[in-house]
Simulated scan of single mutants.
Amino acid sequence: MTDSVYVGNAGADAALDRGWLLGHFKDPSDPRHSEAVEIKWGVHPEGDERAGWVRGEERTALLVLVRGCFLVELPGRTVRLEREGDYVVWGRGVDHSWFAEKESVVLTVRWPSVPGYAVPRDVEDATTAKR
């Protein structure tokens, strides 16, 4: 293995960093550091929802359903991802939120990787504690 190779498991690694596998937030010496793209392996229990809407989005995003039933809330519409492989793409300026209608696993790819969109951990923990 070289320093520019990382081998892992999405489920195990995602649990260490709120689901995020790759992006600007990884240490620059880590092969998973990228300012070009972010990748998340999201595991969501039934009823899980984002603590608040993302407003003023500056990135493009692709969200792919691996399993479950996942709702993506967009201005004026709700997209239901219910078949394995269903996906939605939205671009800059599109506000969004989400809700896990059933236990779901989703793969999210966002680009570019820019700081400033994380839900504060205390808000995330309070939301999780309600369930």
Rank of each mutant, 00 (worst) to 15 (best):
V66A: 05
L71H: 14
G85C: 10
E73I: 09
L63C: 12
W98M: 01
G68I: 01
D27H: 13
R32C: 10
V54I: 13
E73S: 08
R67Q: 13
W90F: 15
A100L: 03
T78S: 13
G56K: 01
V54S: 11
P45G: 04
D30G: 05
G68L: 02
V66D: 13
R77A: 14
P28K: 06
D27F: 03
E103Q: 10
A51L: 03
E82G: 10
E49M: 14
V94Q: 09
V105T: 14
R77W: 11
E35R: 15
H44W: 05
V106M: 14
G47V: 02
W111H: 13
L74I: 05
R83N: 15
V88K: 08
E101V: 12
G76W: 11
R80I: 04
D95V: 07
E38T: 07
F70K: 13
E49C: 15
G93I: 08
R50L: 11
V109D: 04
R32W: 04
F99L: 13
G93Y: 05
L107A: 13
G68K: 03
E73K: 14
D30E: 02
D27C: 02
E35S: 12
G76K: 07
K40M: 04
W90D: 09
F25R: 04
K40T: 00
R83H: 15
S104M: 00
L62E: 00
D86V: 06
E49I: 12
V109Y: 02
L21S: 06
E101Y: 12
H33N: 12
A100P: 02
R67S: 14
D95R: 11
E58V: 04
E35C: 09
L63N: 09
Y87F: 15
G42L: 02
R55P: 00
V66G: 08
W98E: 03
V54Q: 11
E49Y: 14
T108W: 05
F70E: 03
R67K: 15
A51T: 08
S97E: 06
R18Y: 03
V94W: 00
P31S: 09
E73P: 05
G68H: 05
C69V: 12
G93M: 05
E58K: 09
L74C: 02
F70A: 10
R55W: 02
R59G: 00
H96Q: 08
V88W: 08
G52L: 13
R83Y: 08
R18V: 07
R77M: 15
R55G: 04
T60H: 12
L62Q: 03
G85Y: 01
R32V: 06
H24L: 07
F99V: 10
V64G: 01
R59F: 09
S29N: 12
A51M: 00
V88T: 06
E84M: 09
R50I: 07
E57G: 05
G68F: 02
L81G: 08
I39F: 08
R32S: 08
